[in-house]
């Protein structure tokens, strides 16, 4: 799932400073799940904006909506009337949602209210960790299902760097596991440590050509 977090209020406020009526648009999928841009966050941000602008004597009118998936044109189209009513759209969707909205309503400024951070999973309630770097060349089969591309601070492919802390923690953050220690534990448990001994050739960074495109097999 895509993880995002809300931008600092100051930044958001600055981006809508010149607008009087703003549509605050949430997304009902990934960013709802990661508490960054669902209906609850839409309500909070809209209220906070009204309070801030009201206190500054520069009142703002907010409209609120949450689209099931902002990265789908068909779903975004459903809110076109609300968009038409507003001077600008403040989107709490991931970068993909913001761009879909911006493309569909290309005469309106569509402004991001969250920073899209990574693809991850919840470690516990309210805490998400990065799991996948969308490299386009998955080699989790060789690493016991732990991706060192993103879970190692240096993205190393052939084992840990020399900085692993006591207890198998990362040199740059004692709260984070060294990915290669995790790989080792996992492969050891499965009796497949030989996999870790194999040389991993330099990564094929061409696997995802930017901009990425995936064409599904024709049905």
């Amino acid at each position: 799932m895509i993880i995002a977090e809300r931008k600092p209020m100051e930044e958001i406020e600055e981006s809508v400073a010149e607008y009087k009526k703003v549509l605050v648009a949430g997304c009902g999928t990934c960013v709802t799940v990661c508490w960054a841009g669902g209906e609850k966050e839409v309500g909070i941000l809209a209220s906070q904006l009204r309070l801030a602008r009201g206190a500054a004597g520069n009142e703002i009118v907010t409209l609120e909506t949450t689209v099931e998936r902002q990265c789908e044109k068909e779903m975004v189209t459903e809110i076109k009337d609300k968009v038409a009513e507003a001077d600008a759209v403040l989107s709490l969707a991931c970068g993909s949602g913001v761009q879909t909205m911006a493309e569909l309503f290309d005469d309106k400024p569509v402004l991001p209210a969250v920073n899209t951070t990574f693809i991850g999973m919840p470690e516990r309630e309210g805490l998400w960790v990065e799991m996948c770097g969308a490299c386009g060349d998955c080699f989790l089969d060789r690493t016991g299902g732990v991706c060192p591309m993103v879970r190692c601070a240096k993205g190393l492919l052939n084992g840990p760097c020399g900085g692993t802390r006591k207890g198998g923690m990362c040199e740059i953050d004692p709260d984070k596991d060294c990915a290669w220690v995790l790989v080792h534990r996992r492969l050891e448990k499965q009796g497949r440590l030989d996999l870790m001994r194999e040389y991993v050739t330099p990564k094929n960074f061409r696997a995802v050509r930017r901009p990425g495109k995936v064409q599904a097999a024709k049905a």
Binding site: P8, M9, E10, I44, Q48, L49, L51, A52, A55, A56
Partner: peptide, 8 residues
């Protein structure tokens, strides 16, 4: 925090 951010 939200209130402080809104300069209240």
């Amino acid at each position: 925090v939200l209130l402080d951010e809104a300069r209240l």
